[in-house]
Structure formats: structure tokens, C-alpha cells
Amino acid sequence: MEVIAWSEFIRTALQGSFKSVFQMAVIIIPLMIFLEVAKDMNVLDGMAGWMAPVMRFFRLSQKGAFPLVIGLIFGLAYGAGVIIESVKNGDLTWRDLFLINVFLVLCHSVLEDTALFMAVGANGIIILAGRLILAVLITYILSRWSGVNRLEKIFAGKIMVPHCSHCEKS
């Protein structure tokens, strides 16, 4: 067993932790302010409008469009931040939450991630298309599977999702 370089470890861990918290704050705080302003100006539904076909394709609630786009562009943690906030407001059902998470976990921060691998010589079209197709395919299959709601008992974590009626009807 090698001896761990403790001072090196502490420096890496501290620097990295500060950097990730700072990065999250720098993106999440302006995002949330933007979201509140958009809500109060009643333009949020209009902005989600162009995502409507996508949301219908996955049979998701329109309120899920914003977290989906944020996660896709900025990254999983930022999408998650918006999701957690939406869940608190009661905007998303467990099914919405599950499907958006499945999609985002496979396909997030697409601009940065793809660019990073292109920089080491990967073909941007192959890797981006491959990732997108897989994420869409798996989310689509799960969205058409009636057992998704039952998964809540098995896979649900710590967030309480308020039950609303609009999804149970459809």
C-alpha cells in the first residue's frame, strides 16, 4: 500500500470542491433569477412552446421543458437544480422526473462534452448522434411503458413528489 500524499490530497480536494460549488452558484443563481423573471412576465409558456413537440413525443408535462433544455446545454447538476425547484413547486410528477432524469443522465452538457472529445480527435457527429439517439430511444421506450409509475416504489429516492391528477388521467 502506497503512502497517500495528504497535503497534495487536501489541496486537490479543497480546490476542486470550491471550484465546483463556485461554478454551480455562477450558473444556477442567474438561471433561477431568469426563471423567476420569465415566470412573472408570463413568457415561460411561450418559450417552452418550441419544445412542445419534444415533450409530446415523450408524453411529458410542458413544465419539464425548461429543466430538459438546461440540463442538455449546461449539464446534469444544473438540470437537476431546476428539477428539484420544479418538484418543490409541484410542477412535475414522478413520471416526468424519472423520464427527464433518464434522458439527462445519458445526454447532458452536450456542447462542452462533445467539444472536449473532438479536441482529442473524436468525430463530433458520430459521438453526439450516438449519444442523442441512445438517450432518445431509451427515454421513448420507457415513456411508452406503463410500468414506469410502479417504479416509483422501487427507485424513488428522497424527494416527495406531490401527486396531481393530470397524468393519471392520460
Binding site: 470542491s17 465546483s20 460549488v21 454551480m24 444556477i28 443563481i29 433561477m32 433569477i33 431546476v82 425547484e85
Partner: peptide, 20 residues
């Protein structure tokens, strides 16, 4: 509006930081 957004951003960052 801005105050509410800022507060929500801060609390979400805090929530995620506790995990990350």
C-alpha cells in the same frame, strides 16, 4: 422577483453542494 430568484438559486446551490 429578483430577490426570490436569487434566494432560490442560492438554496439550490447549497442543496447540491451538500451532495457534491
Amino acid at each position: 422577483t429578483f430577490k426570490r430568484g436569487f434566494y432560490k438559486g442560492l438554496s439550490t446551490t447549497w442543496l447540491l453542494s451538500k451532495v457534491v
